[in-house]
Design a binder for these strands. Structure first.
Length: 347
DNA sequence: TCTGGGGTCCTAGGACCC
DNA sequence: TCTGGGGTCCTAGGACCC
């Protein structure tokens, strides 16, 4: 089984694990990271729950207050992104020391690829190195492409070894009978549309002709769906660092905003903070967008290209955000405000 | 217990130009 | 006066992921 393999490395309960790492007294306890770290905080959700907290039914995306009811004895902690970034960098450095190609895929994930003789052995070595050098555990999925590796990593999470493999030979026996929603990139909306076409399982989708999918999907989307259902996927490992296309800041307020001046102040503050980060990252802004979510959860975005070209000036960004803000009615209580900057790529 | 924050990519319609 | 297509840019929203 030698040849080109892809491994998907997925760190376990990343934020919670990093917290435990620097506070060993938390080991073995349910740890819940999210929001301000206050179990009574409204309008905040769980970012990561430790394995112990998950046993109480707590999971990512759950409102913090519900988590607090399910697991009142948990340790609640606020997010500390700089700490997670540092831990992530150490993990990636550890992986990069192996003779493989590495594609960093977010803070807690990476693809490893190359001409690999024994992928299971490599996976075990990678896991051991990450544990020895950083103190974190991970699951590793092995496949012939990113799709297979990514899905295999899910099985790896449930396996005591923390390693699982999917290939062209095992894909359909393993995945064929499973619901299409288990595919990577197929969410609830797509599941519904496929159901309307009588397609429920991965095998159904793999066998579907493009003409079957045509009523609900563009040719491009249909083609891609069939490819992933058959276990196909991208094999390219991009080692160059990712260049962000955009950067944004948004905040959900504890209490809704009703005063226009208050809304303008908040948008200005978000835009300036965002501008400072963008400049610190050495990037230039070409477009500014604003997001408004009302108390009823109705969400709209408005945006505008900067007429005078790319900028690094926080004043220009803030002014642009306020101009975009005038495109909104703002006649309802505002729950969330966000500002997004699209960045000049290739500069 | 109402539903976070930070991203990416795709699509579709209208404007505008040739 | 009416009528083509094609191409690109811009904007808004949808869908998905972690």
């Amino acid at each position: 089984m030698t040849g080109v393999w892809l491994l998907h490395v997925d760190l376990d309960q990343f934020f919670a694990s990093v917290e435990v790492l620097r506070r060993p007294e938390l080991r073995g306890r349910p740890v819940i990271v999210g929001g301000a770290g206050d179990p009574a905080q409204a309008r905040a959700v769980v970012a990561t729950a430790s394995r112990e907290a998950r046993e109480f039914g707590v999971h990512s995306g759950m409102p913090i207050r519900m988590a607090a009811r399910k697991c009142p004895d948990a340790v609640f902690l606020p997010m500390d992104m700089p700490a997670y970034q540092r831990a992530s960098a150490r993990v990636m450095e550890t992986l990069r020391a192996f003779p493989v190609r590495l594609e960093v895929w977010g803070l807690d994930e990476a693809f490893v690829g190359g001409d690999i003789d024994d992928p299971q052995r490599l996976a075990a070595d990678l896991k051991a190195a990450v544990l020895d050098e950083v103190g974190l555990t991970c699951a590793i999925g092995i496949g012939r492409n990113k799709n297979q590796a990514k899905i295999a990593a899910r099985f790896a999470k449930k396996d005591p070894s923390g390693i699982a493999t999917l290939t062209g030979e095992t894909w359909m026996p393993v995945m064929g009978g499973r619901p299409v929603g288990e595919l990577w990139g197929v969410g609830p909306k797509t599941v519904k549309k496929l159901e309307e076409l009588g397609i429920e399982t991965v095998a159904d989708l793999a066998a579907a002709g493009l003409e079957t999918l045509a009523p609900r999907f563009t040719p491009r989307a249909a083609t891609w769906l069939v490819v992933i259902a058959r276990g196909g996927g991208d094999t390219e490992v991009v080692t160059e660092p990712w260049v962000a296309r955009s950067r944004s800041k948004e905040v959900t307020f504890d209490r809704d905003l009703t005063e226009r001046t208050e809304i303008e102040e908040q948008v200005t503050a978000l835009a300036r903070a965002l501008g400072a980060e963008v400049v610190a990252a050495g990037r230039r802004v070409i477009r500014v967008g604003v997001k408004v979510r009302t108390a009823s959860f109705f969400t709209q975005t408005r945006e505008a290209k900067l007429r005078d070209g790319p900028t690094t000036d926080p004043d220009v960004i803030a002014h642009a955000a306020l101009t975009v803000l005038t495109k909104f009615e703002l006649d309802r209580p505002v729950r969330l405000l966000g500002v997004r900057a699209d960045l000049l790529v290739n500069d």
